[in-house]
Amino acid sequence: MEWIDTDAAGIYHNTTVVRFAEAAEAELMRRYDIPGYFPVAPRVRYEVEFEASIRFGEEVETRVELIRLGRSSMTFGFEVWRSTEDGKPDRRAARGSYVTVHVPDKETGGSAPWPAAWRAALDAAGAAGRAEPDGASAH
């Protein structure tokens, strides 16, 4: 955790959790070879429960999981864990979920089905592509 991630008291700012989740999501999309995902997948809903503080200098681990792959939306669950000095998850600091929607045409802004190749890649990963500590995670 860097100083820029914290408030004036040195405790992580709530928006930091969103950045951590999106970094783990980016790793997941790279792992399953989903090119061009972020420019066409805006977030339409976020829900976060904050459970413990993380302070400047502490290590974190973020896990993201694809919970639901819909026709034009995806629902992800995530957790942010504070880590011990040896890198093991210690205490969950935040958990939540968010929804992205496929919006390939920025002019109309309407949703559209996910590309077949993306669906196939995610389905091959088990439809709910998991990101565990040894999977798509961000530190």
Results as ranks from 00 to 15, higher is better:
36 G>M: 05
93 A>T: 01
78 F>L: 07
104 P>C: 06
85 E>R: 15
26 A>C: 10
60 V>S: 04
88 K>T: 14
55 R>I: 05
75 T>V: 11
81 W>C: 03
119 R>Y: 04
45 R>S: 13
113 P>Y: 02
24 A>Q: 03
128 A>F: 09
93 A>W: 00
104 P>E: 02
128 A>Y: 08
133 P>G: 13
35 P>K: 07
13 H>C: 02
26 A>W: 11
84 T>S: 15
68 R>W: 07
134 D>N: 13
98 Y>E: 00
24 A>R: 00
42 P>R: 07
52 A>P: 07
53 S>Q: 15
135 G>N: 06
76 F>M: 11
90 D>E: 15
104 P>F: 02
88 K>N: 12
98 Y>P: 00
64 V>I: 15
65 E>A: 12
127 A>W: 09
68 R>A: 11
127 A>S: 12
52 A>D: 14
2 E>A: 11
70 G>M: 04
41 A>F: 01
117 A>E: 15
125 A>Q: 00
58 E>M: 09
12 Y>S: 12
32 Y>E: 12
122 L>M: 10
116 A>Y: 06
18 V>D: 00
85 E>K: 14
91 R>T: 11
98 Y>S: 02
33 D>F: 08
95 R>V: 09
112 A>W: 04
110 G>I: 09
122 L>V: 02
94 A>K: 01
25 E>L: 11
17 V>G: 01
91 R>N: 10
103 V>G: 08
50 F>Q: 04
120 A>P: 06
111 S>H: 09
74 M>T: 02
50 F>G: 03
118 W>D: 00
49 E>A: 12
39 P>Q: 01
7 D>T: 04
7 D>S: 04
106 K>R: 13
57 G>Y: 04
25 E>Y: 06
22 E>K: 09
53 S>P: 14
61 E>P: 03
69 L>P: 04
115 P>E: 05
131 A>W: 09
63 R>M: 13
34 I>L: 11
80 V>N: 02
137 S>P: 06
32 Y>N: 11
91 R>F: 03
1 M>A: 13
121 A>R: 14
120 A>H: 11
40 V>T: 14
31 R>V: 07
133 P>C: 10
42 P>W: 06
134 D>Y: 10
87 G>Q: 07
29 M>H: 08
60 V>K: 03
105 D>T: 03
37 Y>R: 03
5 D>Q: 09
82 R>P: 02
43 R>A: 13
13 H>Y: 14
19 R>L: 07
116 A>I: 10
39 P>M: 01
120 A>D: 15
65 E>R: 15
126 G>R: 06
133 P>F: 11
100 T>A: 11
114 W>K: 04
37 Y>F: 13
86 D>K: 14
109 G>N: 08
8 A>M: 09
69 L>K: 05
35 P>W: 05
99 V>E: 00
113 P>I: 02
129 G>V: 15
17 V>P: 01
135 G>K: 05
77 G>D: 13
75 T>I: 08
124 A>D: 14
9 A>S: 12
52 A>M: 08
67 I>H: 12
37 Y>P: 03
33 D>E: 13
